[in-house]
Design a protein around this nucleic acid. Sequence first.
DNA 1: GCCGGACCGTACGCTGGCGTATGGAAGGAT
DNA 2: ATCCTTCCATACGCCAGCGTACGGTCCGGC
Lengths: 178, 178
Amino acid sequence: MAKVTADDWANAALEAMAEGGPAAVAVEPVATRLGVSKGSFYWHFTNRQALVEAALRRWETSTGEIIDYLEEIPDPAARLRALLELAFSDPRDASVSLRLVGAADDPAVAEVARRVSQRRLGYIAAALEQLGHPPQAARDRALSAYSGYLGLAALLRIGAVTEVPPNAVEEVLREMLT
Amino acid sequence: MAKVTADDWANAALEAMAEGGPAAVAVEPVATRLGVSKGSFYWHFTNRQALVEAALRRWETSTGEIIDYLEEIPDPAARLRALLELAFSDPRDASVSLRLVGAADDPAVAEVARRVSQRRLGYIAAALEQLGHPPQAARDRALSAYSGYLGLAALLRIGAVTEVPPNAVEEVLREMLT
DNA sequence: GCCGGACCGTACGCTGGCGTATGGAAGGAT
DNA sequence: ATCCTTCCATACGCCAGCGTACGGTCCGGC
């Protein structure tokens, strides 16, 4: 009837993580969400930690696919613009990122967050290099841009800023490219 | 013998929050930390939520005092520099801030984080206005600077960046002042 | 000296979540 | 038709943390 797969569990766990952070990735609640009991879970996974890691892997690959998709845009400036517009229009990813930052005591959480961030930083820096910036400058600007994005997402999340400034994308682009 | 006050509880709770986030502000562990039992706690407070709020209030006033102290620096440029150097040298505050961002589902948490952030943004913007920026530009630059700070703190926390870039303070200052 | 209030220890019940054990149901292989 | 494998439900024991009940101690006022 139900026939739930391990991937179903991972998806539901990621959903729970987006809503309540890694701490909310609990076996029984996710089971209820899937309309299934714990018996199913412990057949597919060994313990709760494995579920958290599955959700993290799922998030990492899904963000990776977005970057893979963007990589295909030939013009580096257009690529950066597409990235920014995607980032500022996807509150879910920002929410997950910030939750992982908050839960970074768990080494598994911190490592995934770190890998994802570094991949993004590398992606931005590579585009900037293609645009003629020397490597070190490209890395510096990438870091500053991505930091600004993350911080703004944080301020949005707590309501210190109510809307993303309408010229934010242009602003960051200008800042990076000049 | 021990004679613990409500303030002692609030301090210990803030300590626990800095280490493990709001979720780690649990009655029994904090009691142990104070060398006391729950009996003491439920004398001074009504429930756990009250303890969390006490810790939040404590953090808010303590960050407020820092700003009050900085307000006394007459030269606005020196004031901003002092703020930045303080911020980048105080990992504890950054840690608490980021944890609150992560736990912003709790409205009490979000509101304190919001108030603190807005106070800081206002403080920076005021200094920039004194330096001749028109109000809107001052607010924009304050937002961009503070976002950058927060984001960098996040990246440091997860290890995506291992050290605060040595010229970060100068960089942000230049960005704000020009 | 004792008495009442401030303060705390201890013991208890309750809940939510983890992990285990065990017994099915359902479907394909033979 | 039977049997093995896959998948799941149910029931259980366990632990941490919340909140309550109640008793005990210490100390100032009288």
